[in-house]
Simulated assay, not measured.
Amino acid sequence: MLRSILSLGAVLAITACGGRESSDQFVGFTDEPLHQAHAHNDYLHERPLLDALEHGFMSIEADVFAFPLLGDALYVAHDINDIRPGRTLRTLYLEPIRQRIDTLGALQSGQDRPLQLLIDFKSSAESTWRALDAALQPYASYLTRFENGRIVEGWVSVVISGNRPTQTLASAGQRLAFIDGRLSDLDAPPPNDLMPLISDNWANHFDWRGEGAMPADEYDNLQQTINSAHLYGYRLRFWNTPDAAGPARTALWQVLYDLGVDHINTDDLAGLAQFLRNQAPRD
């Protein structure tokens, strides 16, 4: 592993001059924000952040690595071998967010709640948190924060998934980030000012993949899970749901939507945006 990190460091040192800030920052506002739309692995799209915002998404996910041997930047990538100069959390997300708010006054038209930036730690929890905490400080005025025992909302709420520094954040009197929980946390629920979101692997809890009707016992289990999460003030998201366009995906999305799952996970921005905008208005 150390050899791969050292080799990667050499590549970054040689090619660092090739990195550049993301461009075309100011995509147009959509008709209304899509609060249930979550852009899974958002950084794989042609324009990270910007494509999701253009489709109205209000929840966006980025995987990050921190390695002291590579400097203090957080690199956005799914695997260590995918790390590239210039593709950092600051250049792909934090700076474009700041510039958009400064220029347009919001991230989405009529924005009335924070955009969720879900940051999935791929490197060790504590070292990655130290790097993230430092990276967030210059943007503190734009971010939801916890201080003096209460939450002060900003334009963006940062939630940490993956290798999570849960105890470190739980003991912090002030912080600019929150923790993504798991369904097992419902057995001993942490305060929602620490853990506002619960995410879990759909396949670990449900066999139904959208083919035919959802079995009654699984439907009841899903409804009870949603009710339990909401009882404690958590939002709920499942990953590893079917994401290939077709009737099965639509059927599963419809159940998630109808039962009130807070974030529907997808790599297909246009597909989920169209699905959500086709839904009848709720009372």
Rank of each mutant, 00 (worst) to 15 (best):
L117D: 02
I60C: 09
V64I: 15
T91A: 12
Q99N: 12
Q111M: 11
F121C: 02
I60E: 09
L74W: 06
D63K: 09
L92I: 10
Y93T: 04
P114L: 12
L92A: 01
R98D: 06
A73V: 05
V76M: 08
G71I: 03
L104Y: 11
D120A: 10
R98K: 15
G71Y: 04
A73E: 15
L74E: 07
G110D: 08
A62P: 03
P85F: 00
F65M: 02
G105H: 10
Q99E: 13
Y75C: 10
G105Y: 13
H78T: 09
I83H: 02
V64F: 09
F67G: 01
L118K: 08
G110F: 09
A62I: 03
T88N: 07
L117N: 04
G86C: 08
L107H: 08
S109F: 11
A77F: 13
I101W: 10
I60F: 02
R113K: 15
H78F: 14
L69C: 03
Q108R: 14
R90H: 11
A66D: 00
I119T: 09
I97V: 15
E61H: 11
L94Q: 01
A62R: 07
Q111K: 06
L107W: 07
L69Q: 14
D82E: 15
T88D: 05
I97P: 00
L118T: 05
L115E: 03
A106F: 06
L92P: 07
D72S: 15
Q116I: 15
P114H: 12
I83K: 01
L107N: 07
L69Y: 02
Q116R: 13
Q116A: 05
L74A: 08
L94H: 01
L92K: 07
L70W: 01
A77S: 11
N81F: 11
E95T: 14
D72E: 14
L89K: 04
G110M: 05
D79R: 15
A66H: 14
Q108M: 08
G71P: 02
A106G: 09
D72R: 11
R87E: 10
Q116W: 12
D63L: 11
D79H: 15
T91H: 10
G71C: 06
Q116D: 00
L115P: 02
T88Q: 04
A62S: 13
Y93K: 04
E95F: 08
D120T: 08
G110I: 08
T88L: 02
T91K: 07
A73T: 08
L94W: 06
R98I: 03
I83L: 12
K122W: 05
A73R: 15
P68R: 11
L115G: 01
F67K: 05
G71Q: 05
L115F: 09
F67E: 13
E95R: 15
L104S: 10
L74T: 06
V64Q: 05
P114R: 12
L92M: 14
G86A: 06
K122C: 04
T103F: 14
Y93V: 06
D72W: 05
Y93A: 03
R98M: 03
L104Q: 15
D120Q: 08
A77V: 12
I101G: 04
P96T: 01
